[in-house]
Design a protein around this nucleic acid. Structure first.
Lengths: 209, 209
DNA sequence: GTCTATATCCAGATAGAC
DNA sequence: GTCTATCTGGATATAGAC
């Protein structure tokens, strides 16, 4: 029968339209903020009316979830490009650069994936999983430099989060904070890693001056 | 005449009602988020209907601005309590603790003052000024420890911002990140200050290992 | 000063014709 | 699959009675 072929064609067209809708949603989100987009505007952007979108997404939150998955996949793809070199510190540095560049390249995408900017929306577990997996290897790169412990990872997350969020909030398009990333890593490693032996520092108290 | 006395009494009652309205607004903001509060709900909370609020605030944004000024004054008052001790590092440590405690004690207040959580609202210059002034002395405390330069201050802001925002977002009510504050300061000072002489480190390149 | 009633606007979502 | 028309609900803000 020809029916199966027709079904395939139909599915392909459907996916293409879905992609067009998502692209329009991203464009409006970048212009007005993620939380500000409306189904009416998204529909107009692709030459439709709002109710037609319900053919492709059962709800607005479902559309948000598809956007989230989009961004999470882009993050995964970006980090997969990190180069592994002989010096583990340079490997880590490379990963950090990829991550920070990803964040500041599209602040709205960053917010959608890393923060929770839309009241009432949180990603489905399947979509969230993509983000988790993408970030999971950071720990290995970190430990390869001799850094151990949850506290050290938490400290590092804080440092990177702070650099990115201040960059986006106070110097969008610039590099006032992102240019500190290498210095930040030097500072962090000097404090948390004790060279190739990987011996751990004491938990705190009594500076090393 | 008695008219002036009556005017005073009336003004006092008006201010008291304004304060009751603001308290209600804060309560709802803490429960549902700053951006989610509605005039209807705030009014109900104080036993009124929404239009009555316009006697006390000319617009919703004016109410937000009053809330902003509230929070900013509380920040100023908090930081004014910082103890100045002989060791400038301990003085700085004390200020940081006050600041971080202030932030995590009321995440919604933190967001209103330090971020821009409400589309279409930004504080009036007079209200914003309160925040600026409250934070201005941090630089002096920092420089008293021998740290110099805008980059160092930017790095420090990033570190604190990261600790606070991760704490609020991922461990509300806990101390997973806030307990790192002393360690963060040690790390930062070890990297950015060169002891009492105050000599500056090179701008970057070539680790100090 | 507070109320009711209402203007005005906009949102997400559904029904049903075509 | 897409449309028009509509439901349902909520928001800020204003007019005018009391």
């Amino acid at each position: 029968m020809l029916e199966e072929l027709e079904d395939d064609t139909r599915a392909i067209r459907r996916d293409a339209t879905r992609a067009r809708i998502l692209a329009a949603a991203w464009e409006l989100a970048r212009r007005d903020g993620v939380a500000a987009i409306t189904l009416r505007d998204v529909a107009r952007q692709v030459g439709m009316r709002a109710p037609s979108l319900y053919t492709y997404f059962p709800s607005k939150n479902a559309m948000y979830d598809a956007m989230y998955a989009d961004g999470a996949r882009e993050l995964a793809q970006t980090l997969s490009r990190r180069a592994e070199v002989s010096d583990p510190r340079e490997t880590l540095r490379n990963r950090i650069r990829l991550f920070i560049d990803f964040c500041v390249a599209d602040p709205v995408r960053y917010q959608l994936i890393m923060e929770r900017p839309i009241p009432g929306f949180e990603p489905t577990p399947e979509s969230f999983r993509i983000t988790i997996d993408a970030l999971a290897d950071t720990r290995a790169d970190m430990e390869a430099t001799g850094v151990r412990g949850e506290s050290a990872l938490d400290m590092w997350r804080a440092l990177i989060t702070g650099l990115v969020s201040l960059q986006i909030a106070n110097d969008p398009g610039g590099d006032r904070w992102t240019r500190l990333q290498d210095d930040a890593l030097d500072m962090f490693l000097a404090h948390h890693a004790d060279g190739p032996t990987g011996a751990r520092r004491p938990e705190r108290k009594g500076g090393e001056a």
